[in-house]
Amino acid sequence: MTTPAADETMDVPADGEAMIVAEDVEKWFGHFQALKGISTTVRRGEVVVIVGPSGSGKSTFIRTLNRLERHDRGRIVVDGIELIDDIKNIEQIRSEIGMVFQSFNLFPHLTVVDNITLAPRNARRWPKPKAEAKAAQLLERVGIPEQARKYPAQLSGGQQQRVAIARALAMEPKIMLFDEPTSALDPEMIKEVLDVMKELAGSGMTMVVITHEIGFANEVGDRVLFFDGGLLVEEAPPDVFFTEPTSERGKLFLSQIL
């Protein structure tokens, strides 16, 4: 499924070690096959953008990477650890992978700073001062240091999503997954979230991003994966995919979103 010609043109560090390896990953929901054998490799520092129509399996795919969905066949190896049913193994992999959701999923009963420090203090056993210092530093990084003591409901959507990014980064993950991070936002708030994501990509974070923001994909994406009907239909650098997709389905999809 990989387009061999495209591989050589990618500006991915060729020597970058593989952070995520998916081999022939399949997933069923009852009788419906959501993933029909997905194989791809994400290297350290790479920003991979996944696009595709709804129901194409793109969201299911990144949710298998941190075991929010269990894959039924194939192999997934994250940072050298294969995802198996062992719960300790799953928790270890999850703490290496940060995830940002379309609907933020902040904890409404906790303040911003408590949202961010919850996992480091409880899963990593950091002392409170260390966790809060880290939280303050991350809030600075996402541009809202003054909101630390507020509750999520008191923030705008864009601010909430930036807190969610800070919360994921607090575990010092090696990989960040973004599942349509700007789809639930009002248009004027999309930029502030994308800016944070661009800064993150620039810092060398390995990222897998589901988004329909073509501008973002073009600017920071190293590679685009086009999903349709549970298949990885096309894989190409963004400037190639968004200008001259090779597959018919890719052309159709682009004509619908552009």
């Binding site: 941190n66 929010l68 719960i87 928790e91 270890q92 999850r94 703490s95 992978i97 940060g98 995830m99 959701f101 609907s103 999923n105 902040l106 904890f107 409404p108 009963h109 919850l118 996992a119 409880n122 899963a123 969610a164 919360r167 994921a168 575990m171």
Partner: peptide, 26 residues
Amino acid sequence: PEGQYEAAKALGLSTTRTMALVAMPQ
């Protein structure tokens, strides 16, 4: 909401901690 459990799990919190720190307080 299911998203609360997912967010807690994605952060690497165990099932017990997810229940005690995220779901039960709400």
